[in-house]
Nucleic acid binder design. Sequence first.
DNA 1: GTTAACCGTGCAAGAACGTGCAACTTCGTG
DNA 2: CACGAAGTTGCACGTTCTTGCACGGTTAAC
Lengths: 249, 249
Amino acid sequence: MLSAQRKDHLRQILRRDGRVVAKDVAADLGVSEDSIRRDLRELADAGELVRVYGGALPIPPADRPVDQRASLATESKERVARRAVGLIPLNSTIVLDAGTTTLAMTRVLPHGADLTVITPSPTIALAVAEHSDARVVIIGGELSRFSMVASGPLAMEAVQHLAADLFFLGVTGIDPVHGLTTGNLDDAATKRAIAARCTQTYVLGSEEKIGATSRCPVLDLDAVSGLVVDPHDTSPVIGALAERVSVLR
Amino acid sequence: MLSAQRKDHLRQILRRDGRVVAKDVAADLGVSEDSIRRDLRELADAGELVRVYGGALPIPPADRPVDQRASLATESKERVARRAVGLIPLNSTIVLDAGTTTLAMTRVLPHGADLTVITPSPTIALAVAEHSDARVVIIGGELSRFSMVASGPLAMEAVQHLAADLFFLGVTGIDPVHGLTTGNLDDAATKRAIAARCTQTYVLGSEEKIGATSRCPVLDLDAVSGLVVDPHDTSPVIGALAERVSVLR
DNA sequence: GTTAACCGTGCAAGAACGTGCAACTTCGTG
DNA sequence: CACGAAGTTGCACGTTCTTGCACGGTTAAC
């Protein structure tokens, strides 16, 4: 096991789980805890994580350089993103919708997982290319000014030619009564078309979406495979949602 | 075992396993570790991988040639961009290639000109949407890691369905003998396909491209409608180019 | 306050490294 | 064909880096 590779592994665990336990990793990789501790110390010196008793944690947002903090999602979105990334199997093809939560997902995508990421959003496409080694396929079409996503007839046609395992759907409203809603009619149609071409569809439900309703219906709650929510979210609406859809937290 | 053959083998292992362990490969191929180390060092010098203690790893995504974002447009590029934008008629449909010069064009696009801008580059798409009121159409396909442009079979197919008045082509080499060249084979094919679907093609020739030659031929000089160069550029090569193509400055 | 887990440091063994060198091959030239 | 130049390869050498262990101090938990 190469030292550099070990560090990559540590970074990945940190991104996936939000923490690193030195002892566990040492046992996992079959090396001494000393080596892990040394790696963690070096990564901490490089400013990539903070060392704590027993392992390491990500750098708290407040301590990060400002340029990083500006483009950061809220903590709720980051937790949802982490949970969602955990659903991605190796060697799979996934579709990432536009949105801040999916953008947060791009930062915690696993390396070396042989992923293909399809997206209608130029922003997401660039972010995936920058942060991971996944193949990136962009769906063409006219950019909707509303959401900066390819939509319209060109996009609808492009969608007909794709197929994927998972679709991570972003909406602006998730409500037990009104279902999944978003603000733009074209976008809603594109989202539906993508969902129809994917084996499973998961909705990303960060805090502020739960219980909200927008103008354009996208899908019914029972039309999706699951709803990924913030584990820390205690909203009672989630209980009501759970009666109609499988809730993952 | 030839050195070049060995290097191919190393590249292959790196792609397959995501790492190379010098000792293992040496044993596998029946050559000394020294030779493997030499090969790895050369591949690292060529920027194909990063050398680490014990072997080598792929280049981390963050360090790849993302010249688009990093480098600001030089003054030469800005003058070329301004001259090129002057060629755009009202109510037209144009294709903007990827590149820093086209990126500079997005900042000086006219407002209220009822433009449609088609592009295979997510970066350009976002820039156009931000700086102008043009309709933006993005060409889908697999993102080439080299240039962050949609290319490959999907892009080729998407290109067949478009039509435009003007194509502003970006290349990395413009030479009287070798013609128009770029660094990536797939990209070159995409550029050719786009040019075939546009009434006119103009090449953007900022200073550093004039007289330069890259590996992959894109088009002959006489296959394009014109070459837009920096009015301040006094390179004698431009004279030689003018014999084969109409030069606009 | 006691205990067990965790930490940092120093150290020695081993692995990997770069360099210089000699033997060998390849290639171009006379 | 002969010859020399240039390149490649493996080996030897000293150097650097990594690793696991031992030891004593520190921290968290009970």
